[in-house]
Nucleic acid binder design. Sequence first.
DNA 1: CACCAGGCAAGTA
DNA 2: TACTTGCATGGT
Length: 225
Amino acid sequence: MGSDKSTAIGEYLQKIYDVLEGHFGNLDWWPGETPFEIAVGAILTQNTNWKNVERAIDQLKSHGLLSPEALLKASDDIVAALIKPSGYYNLKTKRLKAFLYFLDREYAGSMDRMFEADLWTLRKKLLSVNGIGEETADSILLYAGNKPIFVVDGYTRRILERHGIIGNNWSYDRIQKLYMVCLPESAILYNQYHALLVSTGKHYCRKPPLCKDCPLQSMKHNEII
DNA sequence: CACCAGGCAAGTA
DNA sequence: TACTTGCATGGT
């Protein structure tokens, strides 16, 4: 991995990265064949198990609705029925449509054209879409658009908290900046790092006594913060 | 049976 | 600003 900004926290975050990468290897995220599919997945996976999201995406795909034009034309009832396994299906139908209207209005329905926009300007615009919050916006930017922006999720927060790196009241922005200030600006790095944190969160660090086989078990928490 | 999962927005004080 | 609640399926 590249050099850091030579702070204690920066070195610590890199150490975590190295340990996790040694354990999980190269994960090459996000599961999804096209940028649009990834954006749809980012919305559908809100507070939802990825396995359920896969079912929903498979259904959209098998009905030929995994393109902005097709999905925009499909009725809400049809979409809701197809994405049912992902939960909150009525709400998520509205959120998908809100994103589609935005994409159509601002970028003629083209993901490519959307990603030509300036990163932070685009982020702000995505956040103005109803149903797209910080994590969803950043997931779309990083995983669909290959933009160098760090994604913070529940797993990230939980792992950092448990290891004494952040407090329980740190804002999304603060955690995101912690990473982005300490680590080199790299979409490839941020992609892999977030994927590693999610894998860690899924398999370990679930309930408070840290499990013995957690890859981070050996890490010291030397008075970070 | 309870609890969780790759959140978000709207309502309340 | 800082809580609280609704949204919903499928797995453990």
